[in-house]
């Protein structure tokens, strides 16, 4: 606990100073609240508005989770498939990178045109932004598997399947988690962006409504919620990583 405080007080102090400066500046220059609300105004809205916006939060969390799970599954499947089938890897890898070059802002309305206002286009967007970091990181991790260990496995008479399940897959887990951390944050962003498209629930919707009615304080509430969601998500992934990956960090020094 003490250790935690030791690490956290510096960023907390910086945050606090920024907020105080913001509050002070807004009051001193009498900035109208539709232009830039003060942190206290935003804080009040966070507390008082909870009844109005909590269903939006739940909806976004739900959408994010479902999209994240689909995105992660697709990412892992793509990575494993491309690793096991080098020819497919060669054929599909450029396409995979291209898929990330399509601006979501352009793609989103198209998806709505094709699939309507249901959850389907939203999930497609989240999956599209989520699968990529996992797939790319995991493919790298699988490829980087220690050659000495592979050599041992082959000499010991391991089947190709055993080399994959016992060696390559566990070896790639730390890389997969690097991808998961990125995807976790992306998934929240993806969910919010997909909600801008339409529908009547979600932080994205709340944000659009607030923005068009000049309720700038609510826009900031939305930003705050998105940040909290991202952090919680990120934290959960960190926790899962700690529980799942054994001795990897200390395993580094033994390579000498």
């Amino acid at each position: 606990m003490k250790n935690w405080f030791h690490q956290a007080w510096r960023p907390a102090l910086v945050m606090f100073v920024i907020l105080v400066g913001w509050e002070f500046a807004c009051r001193m220059f009498q900035v109208p609240s539709w232009l830039l609300p003060t942190p206290t105004e935003i804080g009040v809205e966070i507390v008082q508005g909870w009844r109005d916006y909590h269903h939006h939060v739940l909806s976004t969390v739900h959408l994010t989770l479902v999209g994240f799970v689909i995105g992660v599954s697709v990412g892992i499947m793509v990575a494993v498939m491309l690793h096991l089938l080098p020819k497919v890897h060669q054929a599909v890898y450029p396409l995979m990178i291209l898929s990330q070059n399509i601006p979501i802002i352009v793609l989103a309305p198209l998806l709505v045109t094709w699939f309507g206002f249901d959850d389907l286009p939203k999930l497609i967007i989240i999956t599209l932004v989520c699968f990529f970091p996992i797939a790319v990181n995991m493919i790298d991790g699988l490829k980087r598997t220690d050659q000495d260990l592979i050599h041992y496995m082959k000499m010991a008479g391991a089947q190709k399947r055993q080399i994959f399940t016992k060696l390559e897959f566990p070896y790639s887990l730390p890389s997969m988690f690097s991808g998961l951390k990125i995807s976790a944050t992306y998934s929240v962003m993806g969910a919010v962006i997909s909600e801008w498209l339409g529908g009547n629930r979600g932080i994205g919707v709340y944000m659009t409504l607030a923005s068009s009615s000049f309720r700038t304080d609510r826009v900031f509430v939305a930003i705050f919620i998105i940040m909290v969601l991202c952090m919680v998500f990120f934290g959960l992934i960190l926790l899962a990583e700690k529980l799942l990956i054994r001795s990897q960090s200390s395993g580094k020094e033994d390579q000498s």
């Binding site: 220690d146 000495d148 260990l149 050599h151 041992y152 496995m153 082959k154 000499m155 010991a156 008479g157 391991a158 089947q159 055993q162 016992k166 060696l167 566990p170 990956i245 054994r246 001795s247 990897q248 395993g251 033994d254």
Partner: peptide
Amino acid sequence: TGSISYMPQSPSLFPWRTIIENVILGAEL
């Protein structure tokens, strides 16, 4: 493959397996 038991130049132990889990690997296959 798999006709002989092999000990390589580097120990080639799996870092995420405990020693007991490592030494049974050859048999586990």
